[in-house]
Structure formats: C-alpha cells, structure tokens
Design a protein around this nucleic acid. Structure first.
Lengths: 110, 110
DNA sequence: TCACTTTTTCTACATTTTAGAATACGCTTC
DNA sequence: GAAGCGTATTCTAAAATGTAGAAAAAGTGA
C-alpha cells in the first residue's frame, strides 16, 4: 500500500502538471498540509516511486536561462493513476459519514 | 502527522463504535482496503496511539461467557476527533478535482 | 486433562521518514 | 575570473514505522 507521503507526492505531481519537480512538490505539500517536511523526505520517495513505475522523470532541458541546478521533472504513469483511483475509492469508504465530511459530499444526510 | 495506518485505525475505531477491539479493527481494515495487514501491525500502533492520547482503552469485563482472552476495547479521545477533522480537510484539498472524485463531490464539474 | 477458538502480546527484520549536511550549477558583482 | 548568492538535487545516519509470524493467555467443550 502507498504510504501517506507517497499518496501526497503523487497527488502533487498530478496537480502541478508541467511544473512538477522536487522543490515545487516539496513546497506544495508543506503549504497544503501545514507540516514541515524535510527536503530529503521528498526526493527519496520520488526516486522510489520512479523505480516502482509510478513516475517517469526527465531533466528540464528547455529555457536554461534560469539560475541553479537543472530541474528534474516528474509525470504520473498509468500505474500511478490507477493506484490513485483505487486509493480514492478506499478513502471514500473509510471516511464516508464522518462528521463534517457530510457538508461537502452529496447524498449523505446524517 | 498521522500515518496512513494510524488514520485507518482511528477511522475504524470510530466506525466500529462499541465493538472496537484489536481483532475487529484488524478485520475491518483488511476488508475495506483489500490488503493483508499483519495482526501485530495493528496492535502495535493501537498502543502507540493510546500512549499519544488519541485513544482510551479498557478491558471488556461484561458478558464473560465467551471464549478466548478478554478483549481490550478502544475509544476515540477528543484529540483524535480533532486530528481526524484536520486530516479530512487536508485530504479534501489534496484530492479536490481528481478524476472520478467528481462523481461523488458537489460543485466540481470537470 | 487436552485440544480448540478467540484474542492479545512479543520478537526479529525490512522499509520509510526525519533532519540536515554536502554538492552542483549558473548568474552577478567586484 | 574568483567569490558569493540563489535554486535544486543528492547523500547519510539515526529514528520511527510496518511486516510477518510465532508464542502465550484464557475460557469452552469433549
């Protein structure tokens, strides 16, 4: 099963689209969760997920007029999309009916 | 931050109500996720969560006419409820707009 | 008493996370 | 053209967490 961090990383890659690389993913997760991750704690799972076939990565070759080391960008593979959809279903079942959840989900009235 | 297992354990305790003890929690999570957890992998975090103040536990003293070791029941503390509500908010933000999610959530049209 | 069922507890090992230091690269400035 | 700065990635060691399964506990029934 994907860990929570892996789940969040995959979702971040999906959401950031063309702009998904280590540093932006790190910042996005920190901002959204309000927690302080460590940088290493995002780069390491990125590699792991790539090895496991959830992500494809490629070096940024375009527009090299910016400062710094060249970026390594990430994209979801179909395997990742499938895993996320399964996870979404599991999450939905687990959380169904939890107080306050009702406010944003249809067809649960309690 | 709570791990995924801890999240699922807390949700199971909430859902199982008066019937939340190690073995039922274990079975509920296995059934819902379709994964094979190990038993030890549920008892250990249960103790951890209790120590950290997310759960209160008490031994089952009622109706001792059943077989087996006496059960240790669990209940959520207010700290756990608060953590779950925060997590729900984070999850909602992370998952908002993800394909297929739309089917069960209001006001997302894409 | 012995075997059986349900449940918890324990142990050893593998994986994942945390925290932060080290390294890389390309501008800019002196 | 060397030094410093900002953006990024890579690496390392320690701590926390998860996996797998064996062992133990307690009551029931043969």
């Amino acid at each position: 099963m994907l860990t929570k961090l892996e789940e969040f990383i995959l979702l971040s890659v999906w959401r950031l689209g063309e702009n998904a690389y280590g540093a932006t993913i790190f910042r996005y997760i920190c901002d959204t969760t309000g927690k302080n991750l460590s940088l290493g704690g995002v780069y390491f799972p990125l590699e792991r997920l790539t090895h496991q076939g959830y992500l494809r990565s490629y070096m940024g070759i375009t527009t090299p007029e910016r400062k710094g080391l060249s970026r390594r960008y990430y994209k979801l593979t179909p395997k990742a999309t499938a895993a996320l959809e399964e996870l979404r279903r599991i999450n939905e079942t687990m959380w169904a009916g939890f107080p306050d959840w009702a406010a944003s989900v249809q067809s649960i009235s309690k």
